[in-house]
Design a protein around this nucleic acid. Structure first.
Ligand code: MN
Ligand code: MN
Ligand code: ZN
Ligand code: ZN
Lengths: 138, 138
DNA sequence: AATTATTTGCAACAATGTTGCATTCGAATA
DNA sequence: TATTCGAATGCAACATTGTTGCAAATAATT
């Protein structure tokens, strides 16, 4: 496990450091998505806020994690399961946010449906965020 | 126009005040969506930041405007064109955000496609956010 | 082990969002 | 129109979130 994490980092030309290992580990053992604040808590503030920001940013750039937009000003992050690479994400699955417990699910086998845009618009990315009550809260 | 705005406010049991009138006016004359910061600028900081926050919140509750989640931690707001009411929004159209100019479009006649959720999940709301290059920037 | 490039933590700051409370203002009533 | 009363506003104070520059620490390379 620890070795696997180091592998992922090396494969992405990132040096293996404490914060990166720990944060990646957190993502591995978390089902849903994590917000910056979650990570701060789960690491007991071992790492500086700035470090966490920069780590998340780096991971997103390298295609290790992807962002999930929300309606409440709090971007979440989750592991990429597809073959995402630097600058190229392929996480075209639907996300679900529970209004009750706040858990964010990556619905990996529900793909984002095609959207036909008006003339002149070019699509780079598409996000589908569904919210409501999750299977644990109903 | 001014009268129409007052009408909307009254219909929603809101007293007609300067800030509410001005902010609603802004939304009427804006094609795309507005973020809190946009409104502050466009009103030349005539109104307190707190008042703007509260006004936006009230408008969302009353179904006068709806929120648009974004991947960069900056919720935008746009006029509801459907018959939204207190606590019940029906803005099921796709939103497009231009990576270049930042403009957020309500694609009113592109409706959000159905998403079939796993057992146990109940949908309350669904957002589709497409980003890329808009017709003005290509 | 020494070198070098990268990463980290700290400080200082900017931006964004929240709450309580006194004052002001709008709407209804007399 | 003047009075009354509840609602909206502005201000202050604060909390949270995000950004930048730079020196110190650390990881990878030689
Ligand atoms: Mn995901
Ligand atoms: Mn819209
Ligand atoms: Zn839940
Ligand atoms: Zn554009």
């Amino acid at each position: 496990m620890k070795n696997e994490i180091a592998e992922i980092l090396k494969r992405n030309q990132l040096s293996v450091t404490g914060s990166r290992t720990k944060i990646l580990e957190l993502f591995q053992e978390t089902n849903g998505a994590l917000a910056h604040a979650d990570i701060e808590k789960k690491t007991d503030e071992t790492y500086d806020r700035v470090t966490i920001y920069r780590t998340l940013q780096t991971f997103v750039e390298k295609g290790i994690i992807h962002t999930i937009p929300t309606a409440d000003n709090s971007v979440r992050y989750a592991l990429c399961k597809d073959e995402c690479t630097t600058g190229h994400h392929h996480d075209n699955h639907v996300h679900f946010i529970c209004d009750d417990c706040g858990t964010t699910y990556c619905l990996d086998n529900i793909t984002v449906p095609e959207v036909i845009l008006p003339k002149g618009f070019t699509q780079k990315r598409a996000d589908v965020i569904v919210s409501g009550i999750c299977k644990n809260c109903e």
